[in-house]
């Protein structure tokens, strides 16, 4: 039987004397060695979940286990077994890279040398700057240093709260490559992101919105569950086309997606592509292109959001 590294059972968290419901009855399990993603916008409840799992915040209801320990009863054990990278850069700005690493190693009763093989791959990229103060580092380097500090005590579970937010495409890609290599070393990783395109890099994901889980599955299965045919449509004037298509009674949803519009119809037609092309051309649109496509995680997310409303 598979071991469970993180388990949440009906976790609820409210703020402001119960007025704000941040986490709404969330249950989920992350398997040992899994790369699991919490996907959702700001206010979905991702950070609250991280702060609960790191024992920094008490839930109002529900129970949870991390690395086999109870969140409330054994919080000290958990603190030694998780690595946490908060969304906001939280290392000592006036200490150098080297000093930050030594400090965190010391706090956890270890040394940099002891688990060097775990961080080596990441540390090598910032090593040339090891005497520079953390406050003077670029965003990408800060991110790498924070990851090194979170790994220094060889945690069983790595909790990463929006590590790639505000980071450019190139650094984001590098970061995910690092996560994949860490996973190969057997570390369980729970990571959150507001970027839907990063979802497919996880083994399983939870789509979150306003404190609730909308769906938990593999990225492939979430996409497979998409219940309608999805068309990508474009023409010379995409914005005018968007307005025209939204007015049609047969159109269920129509929204911009990169250079295309993504369209679903209220009842699937056999000849949906032809039908869409004809209506667009009848409205006077030029260079109309329609194709049937596979939905992405972002399409699924939008669909689930609309269904909840």
């Amino acid at each position: 039987m598979e071991k469970i590294a993180v388990s949440l059972n009906h976790i609820t968290k409210t703020y402001d004397k119960g007025k704000v419901l941040a986490v709404d009855d969330v249950s989920l399990q992350v398997k040992q060695g899994e790369l699991f993603g919490l996907i959702g916008p700001d206010g979905a409840g991702k950070t609250s979940i991280f702060r609960i799992l790191t024992t920094l915040l008490l839930a109002n209801g529900g129970t949870a286990n991390v690395a086999g320990y109870d969140l409330v009863k054994d919080f000290r054990e958990i603190r030694n077994r998780v690595g946490y990278m908060p969304g906001k850069f939280s290392l000592y700005q006036d200490l150098t890279i080297q000093e930050n690493l030594d400090f965190f190693a010391n706090v956890f009763g270890t040394s940099m040398a002891q688990n060097y093989e775990l961080i080596q791959d990441i540390y090598d990229q910032i090593k040339p700057f090891k005497d520079r103060r953390a406050g003077k580092l670029s965003g990408g380097m800060k991110q790498k240093l924070a990851l090194c500090c979170a790994l220094i005590h060889k945690p069983e579970v790595l909790l990463l709260d929006e590590p790639t937010t505000g980071v450019d495409v190139v650094s984001r890609k590098e970061f995910w490559d690092m996560l994949k290599r860490l996973k190969q070393q057997g570390i369980t990783i729970l990571v959150s992101t507001p970027y839907m395109d990063e979802a497919k890099l996880c083994e399983r994901i939870a789509l979150m919105q306003q404190g609730r889980l909308m769906s938990v599955n593999t990225p492939d299965n979430i996409v497979k569950d998409f219940p309608a045919k999805l068309y990508a449509v474009k023409s010379k004037n995409v914005y005018a086309l968007l307005i025209d298509l939204r007015q049609l009674a047969e159109v269920q949803s129509c929204y911009a997606f990169g250079e295309f519009l993504h369209v679903t119809l209220k009842s699937d037609k056999v000849d949906g592509e032809d039908w869409l092309r004809h209506v667009a051309e009848r409205k006077g649109h030029e260079q109309v292109l329609v194709k049937l496509i596979e939905p992405s995680i972002e399409d699924s997310f939008i669909r689930l959001m609309n269904e909840e409303e």
């Binding site: 959702g40 916008p41 700001d42 979905a44 505000g166 919105q209 911009a256 939008i302 959001m305």
Partner: peptide
């Protein structure tokens, strides 16, 4: 300056509808 950071995909698109409207 990065106006849509952190919002859900649906709101992000509504925001762009407003941008198009302003531009037109």
């Amino acid at each position: 300056d990065e106006p849509t950071g952190g919002v859900d995909p649906l709101t992000r698109r509504q925001f762009w509808d407003m941008i198009y409207e302003a531009a037109s």
